[in-house]
Design a protein around this nucleic acid. Structure first.
Lengths: 154, 154
DNA sequence: ATTTGTGCAAAACCTTTGCACTGGG
DNA sequence: CCCAGTGCAAAGGTTTTGCACAAAT
């Protein structure tokens, strides 16, 4: 298991390639992210590593994860945004999410619904019972020319 | 517009049907949720109503929205959970989300990818430029018999 | 009258930030 | 050496909670 592409040696290389300083904290955090691919939060990683590395602080975990994301070595699993948002429409439907304005727009398309329904009807998941699903389509309202990317809220 | 199924009268009925007391706060908040279907956060609703109803507190908005969700009159647009979570796998893929354990599991299926890719290639969105999308499949690990629904975290 | 809902303020929670210190290049 | 990275503690922002008061059935 040592050489499964996330031994320290190859991680060092990856960090260095991106011009990032190689620190023991980054190696530990990066390896933890790769090794248990449980899609952890910063907190979860902190819990995992703190026994073996009691000196690493939670703030460093946060900072390091952001650094890895910036370097393209990890990805944030984006939810709509931090706020929990509500919908009075209780039936299953797809949402368009505008990355500029944070608007959420209902989207219904018989073809898409049909496609997915049919897929889920046919598909067997081993050891997983599906209750529902959500499809979020990200993009921007309007056309490609106005590509300013604000990160506003509210 | 007064009678578009979210006038106070029909909202009163809906609340009463669920055994909820009809209060002016609930009517205002519920109507706001329906009227501007912008998929708001609690904060957004509060902003919208506070000028006309300065006495309604933010805490009430939170509580009322939760009440509506419990009663099945609204839905939380669930993100994975409140925490921002990370993934070392940077390519597009689908996630299975276990509603019992909050685990996130990678899911790849050539058929599904093909289906969606083909759909997006073919589909024209009017006034919306798609950058990417995410499919989250909710359910529980294991089978239907162990249907305990914890809301744990960490 | 009783029970449920509301408003306030405080607490809890998660995440970010400022700054002095440390350590890698 | 120098600058980027780290740790601490404090601040920031969002959501939840406890409790006394108000309102609905």
């Amino acid at each position: 298991m040592a050489n499964k592409n996330f031994d320290f040696q190859s991680l060092k290389v990856k960090l260095a390639e991106r011009g990032l300083k190689v620190t023991s904290q980054r190696l530990v955090i990066f390896q933890c992210l790769l090794k248990y691919n449980e899609h952890p939060s910063a907190e979860m990683i902190f819990e995992r590593i703190k026994d073996d590395h009691p000196s690493i602080s939670l703030a460093t975990v946060y900072k390091t994860l952001d650094t890895l994301v910036e370097a393209g070595l990890a990805k944030k699993i984006e939810s709509w945004d931090a706020l929990k948002r509500f919908d009075a429409k209780t039936e299953q439907h797809t949402h368009l999410f505008c990355i500029n304005t944070n608007e959420i727009i209902d989207f219904e398309d018989a073809e898409l619904s049909g496609l997915l329904e049919e897929y889920f009807k046919r598909k067997e998941f081993k050891n997983f019972t599906v209750t529902d699903f959500q499809l979020q389509i990200n993009g921007q309202i309007g056309d490609k020319s106005k590509s300013i990317k604000l990160k506003q809220l509210k």
